[in-house]
Design a protein around this nucleic acid. Structure first.
Length: 464
RNA sequence: GUGAUAGUAGUGUAACAGUCAGCACGCUGGUUUGUGGUACCAGCAGUAGGGGUUCAAAUCCUCUCUAUCACACCA
């Protein structure tokens, strides 16, 4: 009849709690909309992505740049473009205490370009290749894989007009997911120069005007506001109209067309698969010619495509030959891309779950269990000594019984436990326990390091 | 920004408006004092927040917050 106990206890506790609550009600805090914590259990994925990004940067000679989260608002307004949703609706803009109009960066390309200009990087050997990793802010309505503060990794090549630069960037994006083991699809298109695009827009609008009565309401709006977006309409009724719409590629001049062909040739040569998407346009104004986006691949098994809807891009980028000049720098062609970290992590996790791939866990070499005050005092020192010799020791000083410490060692799948009690401290010894067999030996404290290393290397050999 | 659905311990879930909101994982401790995996016992911890309807609310209404989905947009 253990229930009787709780019978008496519970009401008492509750009464006390409410009485206390009325006095000093502790406020707990929730997250602001669209904000999120990256918890320790996600860490292994984040670390994985970061190392992959850093490794690629090293191999392809991109140098790390870190720019402020906060910049003059005009920087983004000028680069991304007034009229884009990113600037008009989604940017965190406010006045600082001096009355300056500042903004939390919604993306980092503008900042990279600003730094290029400000620090006179055109005086250095071109191209300048930069990469970054950090938080971006967009005041958007959140959904899965879409946050108001999110992280991007990006690569920018400034000062190279050659199609090889475009191809190199796409290769880096491709390698990023290849190294992670996540199958992706790269969509690519060319949106030409502003002049070419303008002429195309006219043709597109003309065409759509003639089909106006078949269009959905959104598209009727787009016709005036943002004609290029007509091409991404998902409404069924617009699909037939879309299919016969003029394609931008037919409106490119020789030079742009050649550029695009060369990019594709490079990709073929590199065996980077891509999908030509004549309907791909990007949301930011500064792009010229090559544009591309990365999507999780649609596979038969698992189909890990639904991070925030069925088609959410992991990242994208393209060429922006005019941006440097527009921002007051000496004209320099450039290209770049960025990838969403949260979206990539989420897609990767889905893919791993669907395919039963387990992420590698960080393993400790041994667990040090201590018993009693003297032992504890000695234990931290021992851990520190072992650490400097390269051994990773797990421990938990808030557990006192040997039982609970071995329990912890067991659940962490540590191969060896080191036991340090009163007796061992006195004798200058320590017990090494093989967690698999349960065999223990008492050794001199000075010899643990070498012995443990020897045992661990045998452990590795056994595995092979 | 528009429309819709949802919110129960840390996690996953159960409860016709009606006993004390149940279960599992988890975490803490214990089953003789210094030995893990299994088992058993005990403990910890919850109705997102505010208002209302009712004798009675996790359950009905309402506002707020948050998440998710679709659209719009994007990473």
């Amino acid at each position: 009849m253990p229930k009787q106990k709780t019978k008496e206890k519970k009401p008492k506790r509750k009464a006390a709690a409410t009485a206390e609550a009325s006095d000093k009600k502790l406020k707990t805090y929730a997250l602001l909309r669209g904000m999120h914590d990256v918890l320790p259990r996600e860490e292994k994925h984040w670390k994985n992505l970061y190392h992959t990004a850093e490794n690629l940067a090293e191999h392809f000679q991109f140098s790390r740049i870190e720019t402020p989260l906060l910049e003059e608002a005009n920087l983004f307004i000028r680069s991304i473009g007034k009229g884009t949703d990113v600037v008009d609706k989604e940017m965190y803009v406010f006045e600082d205490r001096d009355g300056n109009k500042v903004a939390l960066r919604p993306e980092a390309t503008a900042s990279a370009v600003r730094a290029y200009i400000m620090h006179g990087m055109w005086n250095m050997s071109q191209p300048i290749k930069l990469w970054y990793w950090g938080s971006m802010f967009r005041y958007d309505r959140p959904q899965a894989g879409r946050y108001r503060q999110f992280n991007q990794v990006g690569y920018e090549t400034i000062g190279d007009a050659d199609p090889v630069a475009d191809a190199e960037l796409i290769l880096v994006a491709h390698n990023f997911y290849k190294d992670l083991g996540l199958p992706v699809e790269i969509h690519i298109n060319s949106i030409g120069t502003p002049e070419e695009r303008q002429r195309y827009k006219v043709a597109l609008v003309d065409y759509y005007r003639s089909k106006r009565s078949y269009l959905c309401d959104d598209c009727k709006q787009r016709l005036n506001k943002n004609p290029l977006r007509l091409l991404d309409c998902k409404q069924e009724r617009c699909q037939p109209v879309k299919e016969d719409a003029p394609q931008i590629i037919d409106w490119l001049e020789e030079e742009s067309k050649n550029h695009f062909m060369k990019v594709l040739e490079y990709l073929d040569e590199l065996a980077v698969p891509y999908v030509l998407k004549s309907t791909l346009v990007r949301g930011l104004d500064y792009y010229t010619r090559t544009v591309f986006e990365v999507y999780p691949a649609v596979t038969d098994a698992g189909a890990p495509t639904s991070v925030g809807g069925q088609q959410s891009a992991l990242g994208g980028g393209g060429r922006y030959d005019l941006l440097v000049e527009e921002m007051g720098g000496r004209p320099a062609p450039a290209a770049g891309f960025s990838l969403g970290i949260e979206r990539s992590v989420s897609a990767l996790k889905q893919y791993m779950d669907a395919n039963k791939i387990k992420p590698p866990v960080q393993k400790f070499d041994a667990y040090l269990a201590q018993l009693g005050d003297h032992a504890r005092r000695r234990a931290l020192k021992a851990i520190n000594e072992l650490r400097s010799s390269g051994l990773k020791i797990d421990y938990n000083f808030s557990k006192n019984s040997l039982k609970s410490q071995l329990e912890a060692a067991n659940s962490l799948q540590v191969p060896y436990a080191l036991i340090l009690g009163q007796k061992e401290v006195q004798d200058g010894t320590i017990i090494i326990r093989d967690m698999e067999s349960g065999v223990q030996e008492i050794v001199d404290q000075k010899k643990v390091e070498n012995l443990l290393k020897k045992k661990l290397s045998r452990f590795d050999d056994d595995k092979k």
